[in-house]
Nucleic acid binder design. Structure first.
Length: 331
RNA sequence: GGGGCUGUGGAGCAGCGGAGUGCUCGUCUCCCUGUCACGGAGAAGGUCGCGGGUUCAAAUCCCGUCAGCCCCGCCA
C-alpha cells in the first residue's frame, strides 16, 4: 500500500491508509488508547483498542519507527480533525533506550541546560516546536537566495581549505594538509572579488572559521555568513540599498509565511521601513553618549551595548529597527 | 585575556556544616473507553564532577583540577 503523510490522513477519510513514522507519544487510557505518530508532515493520532496491537508497543520507547495501516476517520475530537482507527501496527525499528529528552513538552532553553540540549540536539529536534527554528532559518535563507537570484547575482561556492589567510585581522585555524599547513577559510573575500570579474554580481552563503579566543554568543569560531560582491557601483549607497532591499524583502516574506512559528516563539513585531536609517559610527557615539551618559566618543567601534541601543533608538524615533552604521573605523 | 556563575538518580531543580539527599518530569508494574503536558496506585534508579584539605561530622567550608554557562574584551 502507498504511504500517506500524516497531514493527508484527513483528506483520505473513509479509506484504508498506511502511515509510517516515529512513535511520538503514548497515551494509554485503558480500554481506549491513543498513540501519536510523527512524520515530516506533522503528527497524527491513532486509536488503539485491540489488546494484541497495543501489546506490540509494550516496553518500546518514544522514537520507535512504526508503520500503521488503518481506517482514516474524520473526528472532531482528534488533534487536526482526523485520526486512524482499527490499526494494524508493524514495528520497523524498535527503540528500547529510555528517552533523554521529552519531545512532547516544551524544552528549556535556559543557558544552564544548553550543554544537554546540544549533546542531544538530534533528539530535541524531534520536538515540533524546536523544528520551527530550523524551518524559519531555512525559509529566511531561501528568501535571501530568491532575492539575490532575481537581481542577477550568481551563487558561488568557494574553497574552505586554503593555503593562507584571506584577510588581515582575524586569527585562522591551522590544519594539516598531507604534511603541509593549511588554514580554514575565514572569509570568501578574495574569491568573491576575483569572480566579480567573471559574473559581475556574486554571493555565497557558507561557513567562515575564525580562531578568536571568543567564548560568547556574539562571535563563534564557526559561523554561517552571507557574502555579497557587486561590480559597477556608483558608491556606498548602491551597496547599502542592495542589502537594505534584500533584508526588507526577506523579513517581510518570513513574517508572513512563518507567522505561526514566530508567534510560538514570541518573536516581537517586525518594525521595518523600506528605507533603513543610516548613521556613521561617530553619530552613534554622540547619540549614545547623550542618551546614556556613558562616553563612547573615544571608541573606534560600537560597543556591544551601543549596537543594541541604536536599534532600539531607531525603532522608537524612526519606526525601523534595522539600521546601517557606516564609516568604521572612526578616524 | 578579565570578571561572574553552575556541576546532586535518565532530564530539570531544591538542600549550602548535623537525623534517612528531597521535589517535578521521565522509566517499569497494575488500574482506567476520548486522551491531547491524561488521571490514580505502587516500584526501581544516586561514587552529590574529580582529587586533596579543615572538622567529632562535608553534597554543604577551603585549595586544586576538569567540564559547562553568562558578560566584557578580542573579531567585521
Amino acid at each position: 500500500m502507498e504511504r500517506v503523510l500524516t497531514r493527508d490522513v484527513k483528506s483520505h477519510a473513509g479509506k484504508r491508509v498506511l502511515v509510517r513514522g516515529w512513535l511520538h507519544k503514548k497515551r494509554l487510557i485503558g480500554g481506549i488508547n491513543f498513540i501519536l505518530l510523527r512524520d515530516r508532515g506533522g503528527v497524527v493520532q491513532v486509536v488503539v483498542q485491540d489488546e494484541a496491537e497495543l501489546e506490540k508497543l509494550r516496553s518500546l520507547q518514544i522514537g520507535t519507527v512504526l508503520a500503521v495501516e488503518g481506517d482514516a476517520v474524520e473526528e472532531g475530537r482528534a488533534p487536526g480533525g482526523a485520526e486512524i482507527h482499527e490499526p494494524r501496527i508493524t514495528v520497523e525499528v524498535p527503540v528500547t533506550d529510555e528517552p533523554i529528552i521529552e519531545i512532547d513538552k516544551p524544552l528549556s532553553h535556559k543557558h544552564e541546560n544548553l550543554d544537554t540540549l546540544f549533546d542531544y540536539r538530534h533528539l530535541g529536534l524531534r520536538n515540533l516546536k524546536e523544528q520551527e527554528v530550523f524551518k524559519i532559518r531555512a525559509a529566511l535563507v531561501r528568501r535571501i537566495r530568491e532575492y539575490l537570484t532575481q537581481n542577477e547575482f550568481t551563487e558561488i561556492h568557494t574553497p574552505k581549505l586554503l593555503a593562507g589567510a584571506t584577510e588581515g585581522g582575524a586569527e585562522v585555524f591551522k590544519t594539516d594538509y598531507f604534511g603541509k599547513e593549511a588554514t580554514l577559510a575565514q572569509s570568501p573575500q578574495l574569491y568573491k572579488q576575483m569572480l566579480v570579474g567573471a559574473f559581475e554580481r556574486v554571493y555565497e552563503i557558507a561557513p567562515a572559521f575564525r580562531a578568536e579566543p571568543s567564548a560568547t554568543t556574539r562571535h563563534m569560531s564557526e559561523v554561517y555568513m552571507l557574502d555579497i560582491e557587486m561590480g559597477f557601483i556608483n558608491g556606498l549607497d548602491d551597496v547599502l540599498n542592495t542589502v537594505q532591499d534584500m533584508t526588507h524583502y526577506a523579513l517581510i516574506k518570513i513574517y508572513g509565511e512563518c507567522a505561526e512559528e514566530l508567534k510560538n516563539w514570541e518573536a516581537p513585531e517586525l518594525v521595518l521601513k523600506e528605507k533603513f536609517p543610516r548613521y556613521t559610527v561617530a553619530e552613534v557615539h554622540e547619540l549614545y553618549t547623550k542618551a546614556t551618559g556613558t562616553d563612547t566618543t573615544h571608541e573606534k567601534d560600537l560597543i556591544p551595548d551601543e549596537e543594541r541601543w541604536i536599534c532600539e533608538h531607531a525603532k522608537k524615533e524612526q519606526g525601523c529597527e534595522a539600521v546601517f552604521v557606516t564609516h568604521f573605523p572612526k578616524e
